[in-house]
Design a protein around this nucleic acid. Sequence first.
DNA 1: CGGTTTCATTAAACCGGTTTAATCGCTCAT
DNA 2: ATGAGCGATTAAACCGGTTTAATGAAACCG
Lengths: 341, 341
Amino acid sequence: MEKKVTIRDVARAAGVSPGTASRAMNNSPLVTEDTRRLVLEAAQRLNYQPNIMARRLSLGQTLTIAILAPFFTRPAFVARLQGIVQALQDTSYDLLIHNIDNPQSRVQAFEQMLKTQRVDGAIIISLPLDEATRDLLSRSKTPVVLIDTPSSADLEVSQVMVDDVAGGAQATSHLINLGHRRIAFLGDTADPHFEFTSSKHRHRGYLQALEAAGIPVNPRYYCECDIARDAARQAALRLLKADPRPTAVFAASDTQALGVLEAARELGLRVPEDLSVVGYDDLEIADHIQLTTIHQQLIVSGVRGAHLLLARLENASAPVVKEVLPTSLVVRRTTAPPPAA
Amino acid sequence: MEKKVTIRDVARAAGVSPGTASRAMNNSPLVTEDTRRLVLEAAQRLNYQPNIMARRLSLGQTLTIAILAPFFTRPAFVARLQGIVQALQDTSYDLLIHNIDNPQSRVQAFEQMLKTQRVDGAIIISLPLDEATRDLLSRSKTPVVLIDTPSSADLEVSQVMVDDVAGGAQATSHLINLGHRRIAFLGDTADPHFEFTSSKHRHRGYLQALEAAGIPVNPRYYCECDIARDAARQAALRLLKADPRPTAVFAASDTQALGVLEAARELGLRVPEDLSVVGYDDLEIADHIQLTTIHQQLIVSGVRGAHLLLARLENASAPVVKEVLPTSLVVRRTTAPPPAA
DNA sequence: CGGTTTCATTAAACCGGTTTAATCGCTCAT
DNA sequence: ATGAGCGATTAAACCGGTTTAATGAAACCG
């Protein structure tokens, strides 16, 4: 085995001290061009590879950014991640990912990431915050950026949000404009730990749109379920058994909209003739099955979030920025006027 | 600002030496229970958070695993990643992700990951290997595991593979058994840098099945395109213009199968009455649109890969293992006997 | 020509852990 | 009482970089 070659070996080979070797390789102006050349040649010759960990310890920074997110329960997350990766491509930052599924592991994971100087900064995606976490974040000295993180509006932390209330209203207004009056809402099960979720916000937009149109709210047209498609299917079956049956369903996510479409198929309801369906997210699949949905700028949100964090890392006193990205309605083939009946 | 508290602070507060404090916190049997308690209490009281980088430098290991993969061009990748994360959940390893899109950045990225002691091990997913990379890997002293990586059979590196030839044969035999004779194949564009890709293997299985059934191969029923859905749509339009028109298409991925379905819709062909379609991957969407496809154990492949790497990390002399996971045919509603014609 | 500046370079300290070698305090056997 | 043996603890070295304080040599100046 080749023993690992250290900077001291390089220094010796170049006939200089380790300090000088270090400076030579870090483009310090304090070394002659001649010595620099000598050192670089020696490094080359010995195939020197600096030990990153030693460097990080000495420098006191990790050149690493963590991403904390519920990786696999949210398809939309991957798109945001794509934006982040894209934005960080040309920087020298490493990207550490940490999946957060269960709420109980959450605070612990945060502690670990933010307090152990493991990373220089963190991006948190799609995680509703409970009190403990909010505290932790506001106290944290490592810069954090939040993307699509409800219950954080009053935190002194940079963030990129999507206007879910407006999106919910857009979807609902679209249905109302088509002539629907019996519009059901299918949202996420509210985790009792978190007061506000994007599903809740979308629901609020739904309520606002109904109210603006003077349509009374029917509590039987409201249902919550797990985000999984099959749970949504079953929930939709319940919703569609209401009498009178809703003529349209607004699902808080495309995944759930898929469940609604399955339920409709099982019940022999044609879409959009008998039932209109609107989703939320505009995942790639939405295009394929021609689902009318609310488009979010997922990739953009990742890019913007990464840039906010970079700004903060370069300049610790960069201002806290809160960006709100707009949503847009994408009309495809799952919505139409309600049946004449 | 609170100055950071080091292990020496804890030691002083507990009235012991740093060495003892270190041992106490690492469950060394060389400390009295009394002293351990003292140290732990002090650590608690001072809210001590060990500096990971110092620990890593001292230990000579990074407790980090890198994942190198084409993140966003391959949906199947996310499922494999899920398996990896799951398997690594309870270990103390951090997960570093590095997206690899363009071939030219590949070798450089590998060099960086494998030679700078940045990570203890690496998992490479879905990346066909060129000569330079193969060299690099066989020479690398940091353990590597390959998942779904063609052109690597002869490398002395642990790997998890899927039997793509068998899978291709399964799909094709299914169509043949239904009575099809005019079966088209739609695969990935072969990157000129790599001789073998999974698409190529699936195609070989297709050829084997045809030959076994005594069906002559029609070169007009072969087409390559980019993996994007829209590219597949256009390629499928070309395939379906052949005369006589194929009665079935086997697509080398579900994503491409979606493109075929779109093309069929555009041409007014009913699926499966006029055209049968088989995909490959069994992504979640396949279930929803009821696509007949070849199921791969994507999550399992991630889990197995992670375990192989862990075994290697715990015991540097663990044997090289090459696992082949079987595929299975999932019959849904996009395949049927060919039209009577 | 002596004294100050300047600048490249070196020696030593530092980052914050872990680990080895040395030390201390006890018990047990002779 | 002596010392061998052993377990817990400490002091010091180490991991491999970077940075600060000190040094040496050449350049500059009156």
